[in-house]
Amino acid sequence: MSPTAGSGRPTLLGVPYDASSSFLRGTALAPSHIRSALRAASSNRSTEDGRALDTLGWDDAGDLELPPGTEARSCIEAGVARLLATGGRPLVLGGDHSVTYPVVRAVARAAAPFTILHFDAHADLYDALDGDRYSHACPFARIMEEGLAARLVQVGVRTLTAHQREQAHRFGVEMLDMQAFAAGVRPALPGPVYVSLDLDVLDPAFAPGVSHWEPGGLSTRELLTMVQAIEGPIVGADLVEYNPLRDPTGLTAMVAAKLLKEMLAAMTRE
């Protein structure tokens, strides 16, 4: 393990990219909406463990400026690498889930080996979707092919095709689907962890502002409890797939901001 694993100042980095979305666009708009919710006058800037958010020791590096096409991947990887090189620890605001692949490529050079804890309604293990190997439905296939993570632990999956089941077996994925979660199973996560949090892991009753509604998911409380329970150092994280175009009331933005606060709390816990 790199001596810097789990160290570095947590730093927000917006990645406004949704060109690899398979259904709807709109997630590229998410970073600014999440930041606005974080500053909302209707809530206070403290975490559930009683710490003031402004005292936790974190930064905001703004948004990456990205080209409109798939060449953005190399720009994302380079942007995260720069952040790491200057002592930051990335907490990425997507964007669609395809951004996780270039982010993890950069983090793996600085903090391998680590476990990926992936919260999602979908496994995102397709070899390709609609001919695109870099779709937001494919990032974890690319990550595991390249050996970028020691383990992949997925929580909340409830849409598993036969192909993705084969892929999960191929890559040795540890999958805690919603049936297992409902039965009380929880993952063991010793050692450094990278957290990838797709908001559609939540039941759409709690977070309707996502592109893919998939009923039967986690509650906001259940997800917060799991984030708060992470014991190993967090080497990086992403919060993806919030779509402001499907969130007219701003409810999901507030959910995202709440999760962001608790992720910052977990990343700065001694």
Rank of each mutant, 00 (worst) to 15 (best):
G8S: 09
G8D: 02
P10T: 05
L12R: 06
L12Y: 14
G14L: 11
A19N: 07
S21H: 04
L24R: 15
A30M: 02
A30S: 14
P31K: 04
S32T: 11
H33C: 11
R35Q: 02
S36I: 01
A40Y: 00
R45D: 14
T47V: 10
D49P: 06
G50D: 07
G50T: 05
R51N: 10
W58Y: 05
W58R: 08
A61M: 04
G62Y: 03
G62L: 03
D63V: 01
D63C: 02
D63A: 02
E65G: 05
P68A: 11
G69T: 09
G69N: 12
T70I: 13
E77R: 15
A78T: 10
A78V: 02
R82G: 12
R82I: 00
L83G: 10
A85C: 05
A85Y: 04
T86W: 08
G87F: 07
P90Y: 01
V92Q: 05
G95M: 02
D96V: 04
H97S: 03
R109G: 15
P113T: 05
F114Y: 14
T115W: 14
T115L: 14
H118P: 10
F119W: 13
F119C: 10
D120E: 10
H122K: 13
H122L: 10
D124L: 12
D124W: 11
D127W: 10
G131N: 13
C138G: 07
P139D: 11
I143S: 01
L148H: 10
A150D: 06
V155R: 12
G156H: 11
G156C: 11
T159V: 13
L160K: 10
L160M: 15
L160T: 05
L160H: 07
T161E: 15
A162I: 06
Q164K: 13
Q164M: 15
R165P: 00
R165N: 08
R165S: 12
R165V: 00
A168E: 11
A168G: 04
H169K: 13
H169P: 00
R170K: 13
G172M: 08
V173R: 02
M175K: 01
M178D: 03
Q179F: 00
A183G: 13
G184W: 03
V185T: 10
R186W: 09
R186N: 08
R186V: 11
R186Q: 05
P187C: 04
P190N: 06
L197I: 09
D198T: 06
D200G: 08
L202V: 04
W213S: 09
R221V: 09
T225A: 15
M226Q: 07
M226L: 14
Q228H: 04
P233S: 05
V235P: 01
V235M: 07
G236A: 01
A237S: 02
A237L: 01
A237P: 00
L239C: 09
Y242G: 07
N243A: 10
P244W: 08
R246S: 12
R246Y: 15
T249L: 13
A253W: 11
V255M: 14
A256C: 15
A257G: 08
L259H: 10
E262P: 01
A266Q: 02
E270L: 08
E270T: 08
